[in-house]
Design a protein around this nucleic acid. Structure first.
Lengths: 341, 341
DNA sequence: TTGTACGCGTTATCAC
DNA sequence: GTGATAACGCGTACAA
């Protein structure tokens, strides 16, 4: 006794009109009188009719679906970007298909595939730390699906990108650390093939150079997004004869690991060691001391990514020109962990 | 010059066979030789063909889509349940349509509507704190869509439910608090129309009764999920002549607010005030002191909810019997905030 | 093993 | 205003 889905035909039959008439009425076509519309809508509600998006989308080509791929949904930074994306999409009556790559390239490729099959109209992605090839993203464009990269972007791919002013803010942060009285700054970066992290490193180097600080080469490390790895490397550095007195990380999760390490080693943060990170995660104001960080305006980042989709300004791509990235200005949040008392 | 989507017809034409043949080959039908399958799959890849889930789903009735509605995606507890759900679904090749209610009833109703229109096969929901009516959920069943409630459930609705052993664990926690030397325990609950919170309150009351503790009626408060409200109420209580020396909350977010309050009022946690919560959020081991909590096994909760969908044991519903809830055992995590030093 | 014909539910188009 | 019909892309009886 399977209940069948109620269709416009059922309404049509009940009202003794044609199905196409119902369709138009339900879609508020101009050619139909208000009175008829009302009557039909009432009947539809009465029969508990629900629009079948599948059929409509098949017919119309579009799916009103957007795909989002992020490394981890439970990092506050990413869930905030998703909130921003959702805000715009629910305005436009688009739904979100959300996937996690779990920082794993294979899963990311699979997610892209799934989303293409689900007929999404656009894919908004912040790539995994492992992602060093853009073939799968290229594939998105091949299928005529909008591609918008945000936060973590592959430089080589000419797509719409929404990023922070990473180089500039990293430069400013480093300058701030130096001016706060720290002179031996170690940089714990991310995978350098992602422009996000490369830019943060370059900003750091720019400031170091400007202030003529002699930083040993092993103070500059890459690919340490996983907190445990940051912990290990930081530990080695802190046990050196001449250890760093400041850490600039590219994520608060690294900063947190270092704070834990400092506690274990009984190092006084901030007086003997400064810590500064990125993302402005919630926990930065729960730790003791509070962690200095860069507010990346994550929600706005998401909003801009979604808006970029709806703007559909990919005219550049068609013409083969380089698409200029959309920049979301970030903000320095100097807290206790980088200010000597 | 819009590129058209490649369909099985294009492959068929290229290979001089019929479209249905292609369809079967791509779906690994037994009636087709391995050799032919291989050839067709190769050609499909070559033409960059992607299966159109929209069309297939329309044809087959199902959508291979599951809808998930949670209050807030960026609360670790919920993102963990989603991770669990996703784990099972990606096994079964189902995709997830994720919506947030933002603890708002109207948004929740809208989300349900969207998901039905998107033709999801099942909806997994943890209702908003405002949700006090089940009409919209009833509507899901009317449309013959599986409904699985998890964590926050509406009792009145006879649907599959996946919950913690809330009453029992709350009883145990309260007992633990009492046996740790606290005798004036205040309970800061959630909306009582949700069985989750009602059970936690009942567990609390059971222990109080058993130990014969004289708890003033205003020590028992409800509907305080919003941390700011917990803060306000807790403040009033702590400023009483005879204030509580312990708080049992129903979420770590409330606990955190109270810890902040205690710091402001310079109350010694845990020696003069115990705090105990639910959810085992990450930050419970970042705060100082660490916060005692109940590990709800959030990921397992999600896994069980998804498995319940695939088990399709709703035979009970059809027969009108009461569906027994699936229970996920939670675990007490006694930390610094409820142990006197 | 392969092809034909049809239907899933909707909407666009044309005709009246 | 209103109705008939085709088409979106796929899967599946049924036939061959």
């Amino acid at each position: 006794m399977q209940k069948k889905r109620v269709t416009i035909y059922d309404i049509a039959k009940a009202l003794n009109v044609s199905a196409s008439y119902i369709s138009r009425a339900l879609n508020d076509h101009a050619s139909i009188s208000e009175k008829a519309k009302e009557k039909i809508k009432k009947k539809a509600a009465e029969l508990n009719y629900k629009h079948n998006a599948l059929a409509a989308n098949l017919r119309q080509g579009g799916s009103k679906l957007l795909g989002v791929i992020v490394p981890l949904i439970n990092q506050r930074f990413f869930s905030d970007t998703i909130s921003g994306i959702e805000e715009i999409c629910s305005d436009k009556n688009y739904s979100l298909l959300i996937c996690q790559s779990h920082e794993n390239f294979a899963k990311e490729v699979h997610a892209v595939d799934t989303l293409i099959k689900q007929n999404v109209e656009g894919i908004l992605i912040s790539v995994s730390s492992e992602t060093n090839s853009s073939e799968h993203l290229q594939n998105i464009l091949t299928h005529d699906i909008q591609l918008i990269q945000f936060d973590r972007c592959l430089d080589e791919l000419n797509s719409i990108k929404v990023e922070n002013n990473n180089l500039e803010i990293s430069y400013k942060v480093t300058k701030n650390i130096i001016e706060s009285g720290y002179d031996k700054i170690a940089f714990l970066g991310g995978p350098n093939h992602l422009s996000t992290f490369k830019n943060r490193k370059d900003g750091f180097l720019k400031a170091i150079k400007e202030f003529n600080l002699p930083i040993p080469f092993n103070f500059i490390q890459e690919d340490l997004l996983v907190p445990e790895n940051s912990y290990k490397v930081a530990r080695e550095l802190l046990l050196l004869k001449d250890p760093p007195n400041a850490f600039l990380t590219v994520s608060d999760h690294q900063s947190l690991a270092i704070l834990r390490l400092a506690n274990e080693l009984q190092i006084d943060v901030p007086n003997d060691l400064a810590i500064f990170g990125f993302a402005n995660e919630d926990f930065t104001t729960i730790t003791n001391p509070f962690l200095s960080s860069v507010d990346q305006k994550s929600k706005e980042l998401g909003r801009q990514a979604a808006l970029a989709f709806f703007a559909k300004t990919n005219a550049e791509r068609v013409r083969g020109e380089k698409i200029e990235p959309i920049i979301v200005e970030s903000e320095i949040m100097v807290r206790q962990s980088s200010k000597k008392i």
